[in-house]
Amino acid sequence: MKFAHLIAASILVGTLAMPAASFAADKPVVGLVMKSLANEFFKNMLEGAKAHEAKRGDYTLKAVGMQSETDVETQINAIESFITQKVDAIVVAPSDSRALVPPIKRAVDAGITVVNFDVALDDKAKEEAGLKLAFVGPDNREGAKMAGDALAKKLGAGAKVVIIEGNPGADNAAQRKLGFMDSVAAGKLDLLDSRTAHWETEEANTVFSNMLTAHPDIQGVMAANDSMVLGVVKAIEAAGKTGKIEVVGFDNIPAVQPLLKEKKLLATVDQFGQQMAANAIDKALGVVAGGKPLEGWVKTEIKLVTSDDVK
């Protein structure tokens, strides 16, 4: 029924959109609240959403991004302005899993369909606010475990490894670390050290060089994102240990494609960020069109990427 509705809607739009712009007001309006657009990952996600809007053509997209990763206020203001504008749906990637709960609750109370994607809102904060909301997103812990398992399989039990963590306090950083720890336990790896490099290339280069000095026998590295992989691989090259230390990462950014090809990076994880916002919008529109409300955790696709996947 939902599908039929969509087809009906697209036929309607297809026939009417061209001559009469005024009909655009009849299309559902989706407010998209993104994280920092200075981050390539979110910028691509936004472009994916815009392409999706053009392709579907049966809704209007209003997107808001932030100046920086921690700019919580911009997100709160954006949600409040979407409530005022009486949009049909809000799709939000929260920059803070607690601070965003009250404004989202107000949006839900105002009768707006809200979909939480990318980073899950805090369960306890939701409960306290009396908010019931599903989460659409990848399982970062599972993804990190896939990468970690690939490393464990390559190196074998007892191999000496280190973890390069993301920002302390960030939920995805915490989940990815847990996933790596799962692999350490399952693969019986010997974890020598685990430190943050705040998602950054230069800091990862410095931190890993110093770890390598303290533990010259490191055999494997699990980095919580690919920007840090770039710094780690350069540190391995500088130490003349290329081929002796295996690295796994997360995000599958364009800059690591050459490294995958040259086998300087064993594996990374793709969580299909470009489609993530678009998927969440599809889910929101489904509910707006009268579909069943979302429940629990709607997991999105993640995939392990190795040199075999690079042409």
């Binding site: 200075a38 981050n39 390539e40 290339t201 230069e202 280069n205 770039l230 710094g231 350069k234 800059a255």
Partner: peptide, 15 residues
């Protein structure tokens, strides 16, 4: 020097 050391250039470095 940054580029020579790390082999990338990006708009989010140097923070």
């Amino acid at each position: 020097i940054y580029m020579a050391r790390l082999n990338i250039a990006s708009p989010i470095i140097g923070i």
